[in-house]
Amino acid sequence: MYTVSEGIIRERFPHRWSSCGSYVLESMPFYHVYPGSQCLAIGTTSCNFRCRYCSNAYIAKEDPEIQQGRLYHLTPRELVGMARKFNCRSIVFNVNEPAVSLPSLLDVAEEAKAAAIPMGCLTNGYTTVESTELLASIFSFFNVSLKGISDSFNRTYIGVESSSPVLRTIRRLAQDRHVEVTTPVVQGANDSEIDTIADLLAEIDPEIPWHVLRLLPEDEMKDAEYPNIQAIDAALQSARKKLPYIYFHNFISSQWVNTLCPDCGCTVIERFSLGCGGDQLKRLFCKDSQCPDCGRKINLMSEQACFKSTQRVLQ
C-alpha cells in the first residue's frame, strides 16, 4: 500500500511480509512451471480489489497498520537467503496483490536475479500499463486472476468497474512471460461467462493454462452455497475444445487436475488435489517438455526460457 507525502508516492510498510514459507508450486497454483519444485511463497498486506469472497480477507482487507506486530521483517537479501536455505527453486508472491508493494518487490527481484532465482506471482491484473511493465520486470511467471467479464459482476463481487484492465494485462504479459489464468466460479454470477472467457483466452493464446476454481465461500460470502461441481464441469465441456489446458479444482480429490497432451490425449502430468492451496505433483511423464507418446511440445516453463526473460528486462 502507498501513501503520498510531499507529493511523492511511497510504500507504507516496505519489506514487511505477511507470509514467507516454502511450498510446492502446484499449490499456488502453478501447474506449468517447474513441476514438483519448492518455492518460497511471500506476501504483503492490502489489495486494490475488495472481492466479496476473499480467502485472505484478514490480510488483504484489514488495515495494514494493525497487522504490523505479526509480520516478517526481512530484507531482500534475507528473503533470497531463505529461498536458498529451503532449496526453493523460485520465489512466488501469492497472498495479496503484488502491485501494492512494487518498490519492495523490485528490491527483492534485484537480489533474486543475482542469485539466479526466478520470481512468479499471483495477480489480479488490475494495473496501469506502467505498473504492468514493472510487474513484468520483476516476475517471469504469472497467474492472473480473471474473476469475471461483465461490468455488473465486477461491480457487485469485486468492487471495480470493469475487467478491461485485466484483459489488457493478460494480453501484454502473454507476449513474453509465462501466463496461467485463474477464474473462481461463483454459481449464478459468472458461470454463464465460462465460454466467453475461454474464447478470449483462446484468442490471446490457446496454450494458456486456465484454472477454473470452485469458489470456496469465505469472507462476505461465508454463508453462500458451495457451487455445484457437476454443473460447472458440464459448463466447461465446450471450453475444453478451445483450450487444451483447462483445470477444474479447489476442492478435495478433483479429477480434473492432470495435464493431457493436446494432440494425442495421453496424460503427461498427474497431480493430487487436496483442495484450496493443497495441490501436489503425483507423476511427471513428459521429458524436455514433450509428450512421451507423440513428442508434442507441452507448455511448460523451462529453466532457460525463464532466465532469458528476466534478464532481458532487468539488465
Partner: peptide, 14 residues
C-alpha cells in the same frame, strides 16, 4: 524436521 523433498510424490496424500 527439515525435509528437502516435501514436494515429491508420497503415499497417503489425504
Amino acid at each position: 524436521y527439515f525435509n528437502g523433498n516435501e514436494g515429491t510424490t508420497r503415499s497417503y496424500p489425504f
